[in-house]
Design a protein around this nucleic acid. Structure first.
Lengths: 164, 164
DNA sequence: CAAAAAAGGTTTTAGCTTGAAATATATTTC
DNA sequence: GAAATATATTTCAAGCTAAAACCTTTTTTG
């Protein structure tokens, strides 16, 4: 076992350290797994429901907020750009899954809500979605899943504070 | 501690089980973290280098394969659609970062390679990229990172077998 | 070898994504 | 209360994405 750590200085950035290599490795694997699951979900939503992940995400947000959300709240919850939501809601509205309701006191704003049809469609999709996740992540035991959840949760919290 | 598992039957799909709830929870958190890191990387690449993540991914692949890759190999390595790579390579070629080389024996195919300029630009971006990851995932200790890597790695392997 | 099938790429279409500019309405300030 | 500022949303430009249609060129097959 020859000497392996010739450079023990505390370089704060740019210089690749053992730790940064480890994190990079983790990131690449995590990204790969995430993309695989996402692309599976995309395809299954497309084939089974003729829908997309962004549409599903919007409906999921609206399902959680029964009273509806303003466009800006929607983009805030989903953490996507403002103009982005406009197009997705347009298409969902065309299909009769959501409605834009005028906000009484403010003629700029509008409230987006799921329609009855929207609620029904989403309920079916959400159930399938959960089963797909269960299948795609079957390699994680429930215990592992819980451990990872808790860890990611801590990190998300940090991120949210930054992004205030 | 009252009894907590009223439904011990082996329902294979659709019925939400405790395990599926746990995996769903994990997925949502993992996705949130991944998206946060990705959007940070996108923004930083844009601001610091006027570039994008897909461009970076293509250059990273070409940096690993010094002899170059065919378009189809490139899309295979990156796991994106065939026609997708065409546009990205077009733009990288316009900027002089890659070149398309005719394959001697086959007039359909072409080999894509990084130019000298491409190698230099990528080297700088890759170093910044690693430092950004290190910063964005600083909440993971190197040991945790290693553990997560190993776990995701096992899963990726399974996915690759499916996707053959 | 000619027809058929396969392989390598590009183009097209429709949708998603962001950031910036534009529009309309509200609120604040002088 | 008019002008300036801020807020809510949409529009726009540029790029990414998958899938499908479409050329070429190569390989296979009868």
């Amino acid at each position: 076992m020859a000497s392996q750590s010739p450079d023990p200085d505390q370089t704060p950035r740019a210089a690749p350290t053992a730790a940064s290599k480890e994190r990079l490795r983790m990131w690449l694997r995590m990204l790969k797994t995430t993309r695989h699951v996402e692309s599976q979900l995309r395809e299954r939503l497309r084939v089974a429901y003729g829908s997309t992940l962004p549409r599903f995400d919007v409906m999921a947000a609206l399902a959680r907020y029964v009273d509806g959300l303003r466009m800006s709240e929607l983009s805030g919850v989903l953490r996507v750009s403002n103009g982005n939501v406009t197009g997705i809601v347009d298409r969902l509205a065309e299909e009769g899954l959501v409605v834009r309701v005028q906000v009484p006191g403010d003629r700029r704003a509008s409230l987006v809500r799921l329609t009855q049809k929207g609620r029904e469609v989403f309920a079916a999709q959400a159930e399938a979605h959960e089963a797909w996740i269960d299948e795609l992540l079957a390699d994680f035991t429930p215990e592992e899943a819980r451990m990872f959840s808790d860890h990611f949760d801590a990190i998300s919290r940090n991120h949210e504070e930054e992004g205030r």
